[in-house]
Design a protein around this nucleic acid. Structure first.
Lengths: 167, 167
DNA sequence: GACTAGATTGACAGCATGTCAAGGGGAAAC
DNA sequence: GTTTCCCCTTGACATGCTGTCAATCTAGTC
């Protein structure tokens, strides 16, 4: 809190005039970051893709674009949730929303008969969700040194080969 | 440290007679857990599998067996490494060792010509490594409620479809 | 019986979060 | 011009955790 206050140019105590506690501050920052980055225009690129396969690729591309930008807040929230019930609830809410968007993409795949056997909607969505998590991005880009383009390319290849019906 | 001491039946200060600090304690516990669970016999099931594809499946099965047992230490180390250089180094060492074992499995796949195009050894190994991380297990089993059998089955299906040449 | 190793108790410093009281200072209202 | 209000400041303090230190206790060994 001291560091945040210093960077903000206010006293440490002044933070408590705006945020109930450290967790609340993180939560509000994460909501702000989410809503300012995940704009309707970006979501439309997925929703209005001509085919399910295009929507699938756009969804991965959006994740690849978001990950580095949400990295700070997402990681902070993830660490915090180990010891804080409010942070855990916020993390679950975030990830539930992301899961719903994953399901949307997989549902369209299924409806256009592009989902490879033996996948069903929920199982495929969960795999898609898990592979496109912040943590996998961190592991590959931060720890293994992949570029963002490499992440996007290889994760797209991986998920296409795994979930899409062979053409 | 107070909780650990209480559970161990010694005074809090006595811990510092055996471990330099909290990080060292976590590190030694994680090394102990690793070496007591990852026995040569279990590794042999992978090394002595008749085919590369069998070794591949055995490697996933071993990960699926280890994850719940190493969950506590692995997660603690992962949280700790955000704020502790020694924990970060230990985590990197652990994951480097795991990556080498992943490469071993993928190398055999490649040598038996079972690695699907367009994968190369390093890229496929990194994908395999990332998908079989502790965090993905946590996400799917702890948060999404998958059973260990579901984790093993679906991750095997996912990675086989993604990395193995179609039969 | 003396010595040693390992444990205990109690006290303490340092640091972070969160709370409280008292007061300053500027802008709007009167 | 004064009053009022709001936001902020400073300084102090409680709490809880990590890590350290000194003094002491105890069981086994020589």
């Amino acid at each position: 809190m001291g560091d945040v206050a210093e960077r903000a140019g206010v006293s440490r105590q002044a933070l408590y005039l705006h945020f109930a506690d450290r967790t609340t501050l993180f939560l509000e920052v994460s909501r702000l970051a989410d809503s300012s980055l995940r704009t309707p225009a970006r979501q439309r690129r997925i929703d209005q893709a001509p085919t399910a396969r295009d929507a699938f690729r756009e969804a991965i591309a959006l994740q690849a674009w978001l990950k580095p930008r949400l990295r700070g807040v997402a990681t902070a929230l993830d660490v915090l949730r180990r010891s804080d019930a409010a942070a855990d609830a916020a993390w679950k809410e975030r990830e539930h929303a992301r899961m719903e968007r994953c399901k949307q993409v997989i549902r369209r795949l299924r409806d256009e008969d592009q989902l490879a056997p033996p996948w069903d909607l929920h199982t495929a969505a969960r795999c898609f969700w898990a592979v496109t998590s912040q943590r996998v991005w961190d592991d590959l880009v931060m720890d293994q040194g992949w570029s963002m383009a490499q992440y996007r390319t290889h994760i797209t290849t991986l998920l296409e080969a795994a979930l899409l019906r062979q053409e």
